[in-house]
Design a protein around this nucleic acid. Structure first.
Lengths: 223, 223
DNA sequence: GATATATTCAAACAGTCGTTTTAAACTGTC
DNA sequence: GACAGTTTAAAACGACTGTTTGAATATATC
């Protein structure tokens, strides 16, 4: 007769094996990659048997997919909600900078915030080493975010050609991803000799830089 | 009595085992990552014995480092030369757009040109999964390129605060890296449903976008 | 308490991994 | 041809991989 361990207060121990496995897998997949993280390490980190991975998920690959499924929809919802939130302020006509900052915050948040940074690195890995169904990312996150951002941008920035939006989003996202990479790099190398790196300042820069870049297109229209 | 196989015309076969190993390793490390590419596959692809890797390089890790050593210095030289080349034109006062385009071309070249694209993907992998000595990249490529670009930028764009240059370079490099990623993604997924992607147009965009972003700082100075 | 289901466990499976070993073959020199 | 040094070859090493097995244990239902 054993309690289903719901009387402990430890945040990990009172979860079921399935959830502990997902948490451990996320951490280790993030740190060492899909091939670098072994089932034995994951099971050990989750305090359960090796066979549990196959029992609950049916294999390492399925486990990896489940790790992602937990995050994809919340990710999309957070981004879209953040965009819609800004658009509902300032009587539906917020400044371009406000929209950009909102996008930057939700985009770079999961990449930098200690709690969710794993997800960002995991994303960078998946970006290079595609192991998910090819269009899971595209369908569940990228495309919906893109259209929401597209609508918002043309509304906030009249004169901006809608066909230019994908390139603009590429520019913004590229800067933010690079920012996350650089930040983790600076944390690994302490004495880089490069100027010290301030996150808030960097985001301020990206917002300002991008706003100017976008307005370069909007002004084109008038000529 | 065997000829040292210098009478063949095949570009691979007339190289020595060491060079064939480096070529094969570069291709497979790029495609499957450091852990994903096995010594057996590399040796098979180079048409030589497994033990040759240890004989010539002393281990898999050393082989990986040698793959990089072939490229780091040429990479740096190409970037710096490209910058200096632009700066020597137009009587030492080229337009900002010219400088940006030159930087974009040499930066994105190794990421997209069929012949050298491997290097770009390999770079993205190394960026996430650091296996090289921590500051090899920083010392041999990033820092020298950064200072060259910094000098060029302040010369071409008077009024630009030198302290802002690292952030500006982050913005440009971020856009270019993202461009390379997106491009490889579009090649993997044929029917993405997203607008079709034109490389030249994308680079034009990045140059224009970034020029506007930079000028936003230069104009700040006057207020 | 007996039964059926759900979960855990240690052990073993068949592969692959990077590396080492040992012998063979080649190369150039005398 | 005999010798040295260099390079290749096949086989084996131990360690690790993801997965499967079958028995043991826990949980729930009657």
């Amino acid at each position: 007769m054993v309690m289903p361990q719901d009387n402990k207060t430890d945040s990990n121990a009172n979860k079921g094996v399935r959830d502990r496995l997902l948490d451990a897998a996320e951490e280790l997949f993030c740190e060492h990659g899909f091939e670098g993280a072994s089932i034995r390490d994951i099971a050990a980190s989750a305090n359960c048997n090796i066979a549990s991975v196959n029992y609950y998920f049916g294999g390492k690959e399925k486990l990896y997919e489940e790790v992602w499924r937990r995050h994809l929809i919340p990710m999309r919802e957070a981004r879209i909600a953040s965009i819609e939130n800004v658009m509902s302020q300032s009587e539906g006509q917020p400044r371009l900078e406000e929209l950009l900052r909102a996008f930057a915050d939700t985009f770079v948040g999961p990449m930098i915030k200690k709690s969710a940074r794993q997800l960002g690195i995991l994303m960078a890995r998946e970006w290079i080493d595609r192991r998910l169904p090819a269009n899971m990312f595209l369908d569940d996150v990228i495309r919906p975010t893109m259209t929401a951002m597209s609508n918002a941008l043309v509304k906030v920035c009249p004169g901006l050609d809608e066909s230019k939006v994908p390139l603009v989003v590429l520019s913004i996202a590229g800067q933010l991803v690079q920012l996350a990479h650089i930040k983790t790099m600076f944390e690994q190398i302490s004495d880089s000799g490069l100027p010290i790196f301030n996150l808030a300042e960097a985001i301020d820069h990206i917002v300002k830089f991008s706003a100017a870049g976008i307005r370069a297109y909007a002004e084109d229209k008038s000529e």
